[in-house]
Design a protein around this nucleic acid. Structure first.
Lengths: 386, 386
DNA sequence: CCTCGTTGATTTCGTGACGAAAAAAATTGG
DNA sequence: CCAATTTTTTTCGTCACGAAATCAACGAGG
């Protein structure tokens, strides 16, 4: 076996800042890093030396665009050794486990999905360990495991409460660590996705950033000062009481006219089925609305207006620099994006800054990637919970 | 004339932290400061020495509760010399100027109001200078002047745009500095009140804090990480497009059913007058609602429900640790506080943390005090704008 | 081909902020 | 009066950083 690097390197605040900046913002020369971090050139020589020696960073040998006409000594960009360590991320749903392997940069290099046939904590941990073994096969230096679960998670290790798994106080991280011998990190699935987007996605470098996910439920994540704001109700219950239209539809979940009733995939399917009597998929409904079917168009239009109002309220009160729409349900924006944007504008002050609204289609592997990012944060960089 | 202290003392980050902590959180011993700021005892000796020498802090001679049975060397609490400098604060409205003198602690020690008969910038500056002279009479060491104006203010010195004064790019701070020889700071009135509450009021020490003011208009201030978030629409125009109830009342200002239409004093008076034909004051309407007059009760009830929804939306999306209701219109809470709170709860997730809602009746002198606090921040502590 | 100017990285040195620990100070209790 | 205790001061060592000199690597121009 090759010499294994320590999984946890104690980094000074300055070193951590350098490591994160390079990790998140691609290859950067020392001078550029000095400019971005407000440090002197000398300090960067000092800070980068141990990072290079530890193998986390390298001076990129290939000078992609070598100075291109600029004179002077060419810069020596530093980059993370993306494949020096790999990370495994899981998203656990009621009946499936989605797994990915990512590089340090959080690029997905392998995927593996398995049905979940039991909710017994030990068996679930067994499955996660087995999947980790399979996933790790091609990637020897494994840095750790991140696990995203719907529900309330404490200390990044214990599932305090998960309604759909019927778990209470399950020390999932410990169970997986026992079976794999790898450090493990557990987090709420939405929280993990938000962290991933904050570090490597749409929220890079932003001070105020909001993530709104639409799917089987609603997810909401608030990032202030680069840190996610934790909150008590983040166990899949967002939006049940966000009343958009008191005279809106009544559905099995969520109050009448709530964001959940108007926007989630099950509620939209329920509304169409209740009106037409036919079972239809979400995609069929969106296609129907685009084709002008009255019932689908009405439900989708209402959803789009609700989304516009919701985004406007967030923009009005939080004033984020960007709002990211993610999840399986964002196909709504393709069909009715104009309605959303028109409604959004109508609920904003004319002089207010326009809302930077980004849409990202995300499947379950993106959620698993989020969990892997959390592992990178905690295990490589020693980032701690708020 | 006595030796005058420099109005601007260059403070190191550590010194600034100590000064602010003592200024905001009353007398504190060095040990207590070390605990709060996460510093060693030795550092506190070093940091406090120049602050004491400069006259900003003193070791409080009176040991109010002198150890009371505790043994060991008694602590030597440090306190700001509250009356070492005084500050003048103004709130400029369309037809009045409200002025106060405060101590370093922002306690009001004098008041002076004058009608504003002209909107000519030079004349207004003349009046402010004259009022400053009158106010300063009893308080020799004057540290500076703070001025709060409705409208858009840039660089804490120039009124970029003020609809009710019909001003554009008026360098008010410079005009007042010329006439008084004192440093002057200008800021949007809502922003100033928010800063004051953040430093000395309800928002002390909080990380996420919201101020909502109800009066002739709506005001909204967001404080994140102890810093107010600046925004483009803060020129008295908040809430015109916050649609609470699309079928709500239509009033001269604000969209139908907007927060402005439902909650501001002029809109409430307009609604009652439109229904009854009689001119009534806001206080009369509140009293009528309390007494069970149907029309007043209906309008006030609607306003209370709107306020509950508004506060719930803010709490849901911003997740602040506290929301402060201020302004001349908060009498609504006395009459219909229960309705507000019930509505608030109905629009919150049952598992969400309860909203810490604080109500503060504030008159125009509180707005003036806010401006004085801004002067303290900028002129004494060298705090800079975001 | 050689030198000069330019730009990036390194080295060296000085400064300043901080913590740890010892000492001093101020009080209570015996 | 002495021990115990808590606060404050002093002393000393460490470490992070910036400034500036130096080294390194390249292009331009004679």
């Amino acid at each position: 076996m090759t010499a294994r690097m320590a999984s946890w390197l104690p980094l000074s605040p300055g070193e951590r800042a350098v490591a994160i900046e390079v990790l998140v913002h691609g290859p950067l020369s020392r001078t550029e890093l000095a400019r971005r971090l407000g440090l002197s050139a000398g300090s960067l020589t000092r800070l980068t030396k141990p990072l290079i020696e530890s193998g986390l960073l390298v001076e990129t040998p290939e000078n992609g665009a070598p100075a291109a006409g600029r004179q002077g000594r060419p810069s020596q960009p530093l980059d993370v050794v993306a494949d020096s360590r790999f990370f495994v991320g899981f998203k656990v749903t009621e009946d499936m486990v989605y797994g990915v392997v990512t590089t340090l940069r959080s690029d997905i290099v392998a995927r593996l999905d398995r049905p979940l046939t039991t909710h017994d904590p030990g068996r679930v941990a067994d499955l996660l360990a087995a999947m980790t073994g399979e996933l790790a096969a091609g990637f020897p230096p494994l840095g750790g495991v991140g696990i995203g679960v719907g529900g309330l998670v404490r200390e990044r290790s214990v599932v305090a409460e998960s309604p759909f798994l019927h778990w209470r106080d399950v020390p999932l991280a410990a169970l997986v660590e026992e079976r794999t011998g790898l450090p493990a990190v557990v987090e709420n699935d939405v929280a993990a996705l938000v962290e991933a987007e904050t570090w490597f996605g749409a929220g890079r470098g932003l001070d105020r950033f909001v993530v709104l996910t639409i799917g089987a439920g609603l997810g909401y994540g608030l990032v202030l000062g680069g840190r996610r704001v934790p909150c008590a109700e983040e166990d899949r219950g967002f939006g049940r009481h966000w009343i958009i239209d008191p005279y809106g539809p009544l559905t099995p979940t969520g109050e009448r006219g709530s964001a959940v009733s108007l926007l989630t995939i099950p509620s939209i399917r329920y509304q169409v089925q209740a009106a037409t009597g036919r079972e239809t998929t979400y995609e069929e409904i969106l296609a129907g609305a685009a084709a002008g079917e009255p019932m689908a168009a009405r439900v989708v239009g209402e959803a789009a207006r609700a989304l516009g109002i919701l985004v406007a309220q967030i923009a009005n009160f939080v004033m984020p620099q960007k709002i990211l729409l993610a999840g399986e349900g964002v196909g709504l924006m393709d069909v009715a994006g104009d309605t959303v944007r028109t409604t959004l504008r109508a609920h904003r002050h004319p002089m207010a800054a326009p809302v930077d609204l980004e849409v990202r289609v995300s499947d379950f592997h993106d959620w698993a990637r989020g969990a892997a990012v959390l592992a990178i944060q905690v295990l490589v960089l020693g980032a701690v919970e708020a």
